Amino acid sequence: MRLLVVSDSHGLTAELMELKEIYQNQVDAMIHCGDSELQASHPEIEGFLTVRGNCDFERRFPLDIRQTIGDNTIFITHGHHYNVKMTLLNLSYKAKEIEADFVFFGHSHVLGVEIIDGTIFLNPGSILLPRGRKEKTYALVEKEGQEVFVTFFDDQHKEIKELKQRFTM
């Protein structure tokens, strides 16, 4: 399984189109964790599994998505309804409730990945307004057997090598 995860693009279009051009035939799913500030009919966001963030007015985007990809249960949310700027506890309860293998979220603009009770929680950061680091980022998640590799890239598509993570599920 291979997934592209992006969040908090806040109106960017050329960058999303570029990501689509690079990854749409290279991944099993393209995921946008909200605050695209685009309409669902925008060609730049078409093809992404997209949730509604606190800055989105498009009601066709759901608040949460639960999706099965291969043998994996994926949960996508923006995070503002789960208070992710303060804690991952609420989101971890939701992950347990739906037996999620992966949880993808945004909202804080702070990139990070960790495993909690066997579930991988990933915030890809922001490709417009990063916090905590200077790089504008997105993530690529690859699962091979029981191993998961998470790689962060900057907006120039260069790997941020010191952030690469490997997990065993």
Rank of each mutant, 00 (worst) to 15 (best):
F167Q: 00
A95E: 13
Q26P: 02
R66N: 04
V141T: 02
V148G: 03
F57N: 11
I65H: 06
H109E: 13
M1Q: 06
V148R: 02
S36D: 11
H109T: 06
K96D: 14
K143A: 02
G34H: 04
C55P: 03
K85I: 04
T137A: 06
Q67C: 09
K96T: 09
Y138W: 04
G11H: 08
E21F: 08
F105V: 03
H107D: 14
I22H: 12
Q26Y: 08
S41C: 08
F102C: 05
L19H: 05
Y93I: 09
G53Y: 07
Y82V: 05
I115M: 15
K136P: 05
G70L: 05
T151A: 02
M30S: 05
V5L: 03
V51T: 05
L63C: 00
R166N: 09
S7A: 15
R59L: 15
A139E: 04
E147H: 11
D56F: 15
E21Y: 10
L89R: 10
N123D: 14
K85L: 02
E162Y: 14
L88N: 06
T168A: 00
I65Y: 11
E162T: 06
L163G: 01
V148D: 03
I98E: 10
V5D: 02
M169I: 11
D154I: 10
L12C: 12
H80L: 10
N25Y: 10
V5T: 03
E162I: 01
Y138N: 02
K20G: 02
V27T: 07
P124Y: 01
A29F: 01
L63Y: 11
D8E: 11
L88H: 08
K161H: 06
G53S: 09
E147T: 14
I45P: 12
A40V: 09
V6P: 00
V141L: 15
I74L: 09
